[in-house]
């Protein structure tokens, strides 16, 4: 069963000179135990898509289903990790992680225990009473991660979570995100990652949905069945990267070709 179904979704924004189509005819599923990545060039509406799925915004046309129910308004059961962390500077790390639980109306003792658990699994002990501006970028994104995981979402939405970090830190954090993902004790059931970094998508995800340039549409769905941890220098990895790359560059110039290759989303060569 599909956890999330994005069904023929269009999104356009009105401007002074008519409306601008951000994405067109987007269709794909997020299944149980799926680590799905959405890649595409900047401006293809990947982040907007994530916001539509979360229910922060509504599609112009089409429907998004979460557990077979149309998403109308902000959906429970999903939690977002933001590109620039979106931590509240006036709340301590503990309070930031407790943020979502407070909104759910948990009693304070339960919140305390839950926060402690997720502070611990993300390696944040020692920073509980710190304020976001005191800690490094890598630690900040761990807080973003802990905050999202603490509400035990079924789907974790990640919006370019590593792109505000320096490359080494991003490399370290990617590894730890995978470690958390592999832990069966921990939520979520599925991850939806939005990124402009093709290598990152292939390194992390089980499947990659490739979007074209604006107006974004699905060029292909690529299954990544390389064993983890994935070696970025292996020929198979390289080939996949190359394929996604050429899909995007060609799809951008010849827009119609993209939809044709939609059904091809099968096995990699």
């Amino acid at each position: 069963m599909a956890l999330i179904r994005v069904d023929h979704v269009d999104k356009s924004f009105p401007t002074r000179h008519g409306s601008i189509a951000i994405m067109q005819e987007i269709t794909f599923d997020v299944r149980d135990a799926d680590f799905l990545a959405i890649v595409g060039p900047s401006g293809c509406g990947k982040s907007s898509l994530l916001r539509l799925i979360q229910g922060l915004d509504r599609p112009t046309r089409g429907t998004i289903y979460f557990r077979d129910r149309p998403v109308e308004g902000v959906a429970r059961g999903m939690a977002m990790v933001f590109q620039n962390f979106a931590l509240f500077p006036w709340l301590t790390i503990n309070q930031n992680v407790a943020f979502g639980l407070e909104a759910l109306g948990w009693p304070p003792e339960k919140i305390g225990a839950q926060v402690e658990r997720y502070i611990s699994v993300t390696g944040l002990e020692g920073f509980e009473e710190a304020y976001p501006r005191e800690i490094s970028g890598g630690m900040r994104q761990r807080v973003g991660l802990a905050r999202a995981l603490a509400v035990e979402p079924e789907v974790l939405l990640m919006d370019e979570p590593f792109s505000a970090l320096d490359p080494l830190t991003a490399e370290g954090l990617r590894e730890e995100v995978l470690q958390l993902w592999r832990d069966p004790q921990l939520p979520p059931e599925a991850v939806l990652l939005v990124t402009h970094n093709i290598e990152e998508a292939i390194q992390l995800a089980d499947r990659v949905v490739v979007l074209s340039r604006r107006p974004g549409h699905v060029l292909a769905e690529v299954v990544i069945d390389l064993p983890r941890p994935r070696d970025r220098k292996s020929p198979a990895f390289y080939e996949l990267t190359d394929r996604v790359y050429s899909l995007i560059t060609e799809g951008g110039t010849v827009a119609s070709q993209g939809t044709a290759s939609n059904g091809e989303g099968g096995r990699p060569g």
Partner: peptide, 15 residues
Amino acid sequence: LPTELREASDTFQLH
């Protein structure tokens, strides 16, 4: 207030 902070309050449904 940065959009992300606003969205964070929305996604965690703080009202």
